[in-house]
Write a protein that binds this DNA or RNA. Structure first.
Lengths: 228, 228, 228, 228
DNA sequence: AATGAATGAGGTTTCATTCAT
DNA sequence: CATGAATGAAACCTCATTCAT
């Protein structure tokens, strides 16, 4: 009904695109478990449903774009660190991961969903484009890692592989922890019902696992303590 | 459809329950990407839709039961190995994982889905029950591992933690690889379009990553070669 | 909400199917120009939307079924006439056509739409099945016509061809007349605005055209007068 | 897109109008079954969507205008024939119809659609205007026909009626044939599946039907052969 | 005159679950 | 116990049209 100010200039369009992403991100934050409908996203952004489709070809690609923005932030800080810091250690890298990936409640649920979307729903061309954009960042970060850390078996691409495996741990452990904690967050006293094998805390376990992994990969073991 | 022979005895019921699981598993194997509808499962089992609900409270818990059966098979072999073999190395363990988790096209897609279900859709009580059953197996396998491997920092629960982290790697890397390969399996010449950072093969990368992880966790590094 | 009496027996199902057809037909009669949504049809039949889809695979095939029922009525009377009447003339046949095809406001709009649906939207298998059912009736009627009328060039299939061409005239002239009268029915005094070449009445023109056509096809010209 | 040279002169406007019609016609030719969206038409014409609405009040009237241009071409040749040829026979007339109506894949689908549009969607005033323009051509052609053919019952308007009825046959038979062939063009071996009553070819059946019709209407039967 | 960004109504279909028989 | 008919919510996306620029 109320026609919003039209985005004619390219920068206005970018701004509007961002507004839609903001709206979707907000809804995702409010209820990470469910995927808002396009109608809800549009309403949250103060736009009509059709307008969302002017900026994103499908709901799935909108979600992927929300995810990509978060990933970009992570890589921005990560690359700044590996390219800017005079020296680097595990804790500095883990801090970046914690800030962008582990602590925001949005990131990991969305990442898990996006992997599924790319595997099934999103057109291959769009998936590939996303991956190319990610690859650029990933390789830059990986190269930075390689400069800082003498890997046991130095080889081009080892930095990227290291990041990939760390990400797999972050993602895999989170999925397991989400399953464990997922349905229980509301049940009072749920914690003590968990069998010991499942009684672990994601952030702590993740840090321990990553440390252990670095210990096996990086020649110089991380300074701080030992694994768990 | 004619009313089937009624399952009155407990063993008849178990048999029918298994028939439903078989049907669901078969459909999942035929098309791992999609989830069959309850009607399809019933038809495949030669039963009526309502009958499925006599044996499983919801579609989700049916899926979880299919998954659990596969997990049981894995643990059966794993426990047999750690409790039966005179000595143990990485390759023997990895072989079990490969047989049950990595190679069957069914396992990992279903596992990923079940983690999501447990986090959101399945009643906490059912999730918890599942986890208790899993915990028993997990702890037995973990204890077996601990007996075989002198961990760098021996401690109760380290075997379980090791398995958990390996599983996280298996799952996390698979999700990433599924996203990469997902939409591209049909596109000819898709492989060379992938950026180098995404051009990796799941089975190889998984083995390399697990080896690297063991190297950092187990005092005696695995005999075979070095990490990729 | 209110679960209707369930149609378990085959005859109950037929009855319910008919009820849905009745509902759709009624809505079509109320507003021949628009196609009711499935939700409206369901409501009119006192059923839930999903129930309609238990009886018809798609909205299009529902429309075709409504049409088929009307065509069946027409053929029922036509075949009764050609097989039962001791003698036959144009007027008797035209009366049947008038009763079933021309006068009911439902028939021709629906027929025109169904031709379009069969050409574009309905699965070939369903179209073919419909055509086979129609063919049986058509050939029986055509054979009856051939027995009664000594065609100028007797040959098997001439009766069917005659009916086909008459139907083409009925349909083609109706389309033209609907276009002419269509938007004008509400405009007072519209008739005199029509140019003479378009100022004709469908029923009269149709009868005249059909008579003329018979005159050219049937050896013995129709008794009543001459064309228009 | 850059703002196109503005059409200020009347002839520029006509040119642009024609360009839009050309674009729509081309798209219709490319895919006679579907109706291109306004956006597609505009793009094909190298214009913006809004510009189309400067030249046509609605999508429907644009389609009607495309149709009218084709009808004009037909009448142009038809009138040239009836007014220019020293003598006239069925074959000469049928050749014109074949060239303009039957053979171009565009004409009949569009005509059928336009009849529907005029009946439902197009403002009565626009329909009426179209009909007046058509009437002028139709009456001129009809008058020419009357001069050439001694109809069985000579009367003013008989030429127009003759043309009308022929057009009804052309249109009605086409609709039936489109329904029959519609979904089957791709199915291999579809032809032999058709019941005999539906196994006919439009061009042949049309010619036979028109000949039969002329035989009943024109005193002197057409020279070539007999009806099918 | 030309543009193209914004609108928002509109309708189909699926399918998990229930419950009368 | 077994059946399967009935339910009805849920959400996508298209596209003709408008109108601010």
């Amino acid at each position: 009904m109320a026609v919003r100010q039209r985005a004619i200039q390219a920068e206005d369009k970018q701004e509007r695109r961002d507004a839609i992403l903001d709206a979707a991100e907000q809804l995702l934050r409010d209820a990470p478990e469910r995927v808002a409908s396009v109608a809800e996203v549009a309403q949250q952004a103060g736009l009509a449903k059709g307008t969302v489709y002017l900026y994103f070809p499908s709901k799935e690609e909108l979600l992927l774009a929300v995810h990509e923005r978060r990933v970009d932030c992570f890589f921005h800080d990560l690359i700044a660190l590996v390219e800017g810091a005079p020296s680097l250690d595990f804790d500095m890298l883990f801090a970046v991961a914690r800030t962008h990936l582990v602590e925001p409640p949005l990131f990991l649920p969305l990442a898990a969903r996006c992997f599924g979307l790319m595997a099934h729903c999103i057109p291959p061309a769009a998936t590939l484009a996303f991956q190319h954009r990610m690859a650029a960042r990933l390789e830059r970060a990986g190269a930075g890692i390689e400069r800082h850390f003498p890997l046991r078996t130095p080889a081009p691409g080892r930095g990227v592989a290291l990041l990939r495996r760390c990400y797999a741990l972050i993602l895999g452990l989170w999925q397991m922890s989400a399953a464990i904690g997922g349905g229980l967050c509301c049940a009072s006293g749920a914690a003590e019902e968990l069998p010991p094998a499942f009684a672990w805390s994601y952030p702590e376990e993740l840090e321990a696992a990553l440390r252990a992994f670095w210990q096996g990969t990086i020649a110089a073991p991380p300074a701080a303590g030992d694994t768990q």
